[in-house]
């Protein structure tokens, strides 16, 4: 789980081209949207693409988005519980 969260932080920074942000600047439970990292709705779309490309995990219900993308930890948990074995 720790390795997955560390990977996710690097991938989020790269995918969203976050300037002057390092992986250690993102807390495991820090909110990604709103007052936290300050991501917005376009970033949410980018994160959906990231999960699909890197982890072959699809978000089937858009209403689950706010809960899944709340923090790096919640994204990692979603990946762990939805990943296809050996994918």
């Amino acid at each position: 789980m720790d390795k997955l969260m560390a990977d996710l932080k690097e991938q989020i920074i790269e995918q969203l081209n976050l300037q002057d942000v390092k992986p250690e600047d993102i807390g495991d439970d820090q909110p990604l949207f709103g007052d936290g990292l300050g991501l917005d709705s376009i970033d949410a779309l980018e994160l959906i693409v990231l999960l699909q490309q890197k982890y072959k995990v699809k978000l089937s219900n858009a209403e689950d988005g706010p809960k899944i993308f709340r923090s790096v930890r919640t994204i990692a948990e979603f990946i762990e519980s939805n990943k296809i074995p050996n994918a």
Partner: peptide, 13 residues
Amino acid sequence: QQNEDALSPTPFI
């Protein structure tokens, strides 16, 4: 490259 799947929205926008 991605066969029209899982495309990043930012460059399109």
